[in-house]
């Protein structure tokens, strides 16, 4: 019970920390909106040439774009969430302090990142989405259940997103520097999450592969759940499975890293 309150406090801290940067948030809203407009036009042209590409109609493609812009910062698609601080702490050795805290390392960082994600969604994601809904035809559900299911999918997406980035951050224990990992994370994040093109529009075998990778849990699943393109329970199962696998891998790597710190004395 007491520990639950602790992680809640950490999450609130994560939320507040990002909430203080108002100008930066406004700038992010603007940038996401501009990118959304550019993408919407290219997608409309694409779907104009090939209607029902990936099973979406034009309105659904537009909805996908704005959901992607809404989740871009929320899920730290190209990095820049809690893992950035974690990497820095590992690099400087300050991580040793965290290990002595009477709290679970993974849960601690997860809580902080969830707070951050929640703020990014409310502060930075909602406005571009609303802008899109206002100026472009979107395929938004009218029933409450679809929205509720989408929220669950979002929550699971946040878990998977964190789990991927946590693994990347822990690699710094061995690599001693986050430059390379960050670059890889950026490439995979943008591409395999479907930031440039919905994954269901990827062709052939390549498309079959990217749709089962963990990144598919990030934008594609919540979008499909929102627009009723998939069975929500199947989507949840897919997301939850990846979350469990990746978080477990994170724990394994974490204990290996902890041993390393203890053996090396920091």
């Amino acid at each position: 019970m007491g520990s639950g309150r602790l992680y809640l406090a950490v999450a609130v801290g994560g939320f507040r920390r990002y909430a203080t940067y108002r100008a930066a948030t406004a700038a992010g809203v603007f940038t996401n909106t501009v990118f959304g407009v550019i993408l919407v036009y290219t997608y409309l042209a694409l779907w104009d040439e090939k209607p029902h590409l990936g099973g979406y109609d034009q309105a659904q493609a537009v909805t996908y774009v704005w959901l992607g812009q809404c989740l871009y910062a929320t899920l730290a698609i190209q990095g820049g969430g809690a893992e950035k601080d974690l990497m820095e702490r590992i690099r400087t050795g300050e991580i040793a302090v965290d290990l002595y805290r009477p709290a679970d390392l993974q849960l601690w960082w997860l809580a902080g990142d969830m707070g951050r994600a929640l703020f990014q969604m409310l502060g930075r994601g909602v406005i571009p989405f609303a802008f899109g809904a206002l100026f472009f035809p979107m395929a938004l559900p009218t029933e409450f259940t679809a929205w509720a299911a989408c929220l669950v999918a979002l929550l699971l997406a946040m878990l998977v997103s964190f789990a991927i980035r946590y693994l990347a951050a822990l690699s710094v224990f061995w690599l001693l520097d986050g430059m390379g990992v960050n670059q890889v994370m950026m490439i995979t994040g943008i591409f395999f999450s479907g930031m440039v093109l919905p994954l269901n529009a990827f062709p052939g075998v390549f498309g079959d592969i990217v749709r089962v990778l963990p990144w598919a849990a990030q934008i594609q699943m919540p979008a499909d759940v929102l627009m009723g393109e998939t069975d929500p329970l199947a989507a949840f199962a897919f997301q939850a499975a990846w979350a469990v696998v990746l978080l477990a891998a994170g724990r394994l790597l974490q204990s290996a890293a902890t041993r390393r710190v203890v053996v090396q004395g920091g």
């Binding site: 290219t42 943008i190 093109l197 529009a201």
Partner: peptide, 24 residues
């Protein structure tokens, strides 16, 4: 790495053209 990152948006264009013959 820089080459790869910046090349991604061209890969996206190639993916689009794997589905269509012209854009706009």
């Amino acid at each position: 790495g820089n080459l790869l990152v910046t090349g991604l948006d061209f890969v996206a264009i190639l993916l689009m053209f794997s589905q269509v013959d012209s854009l706009g």
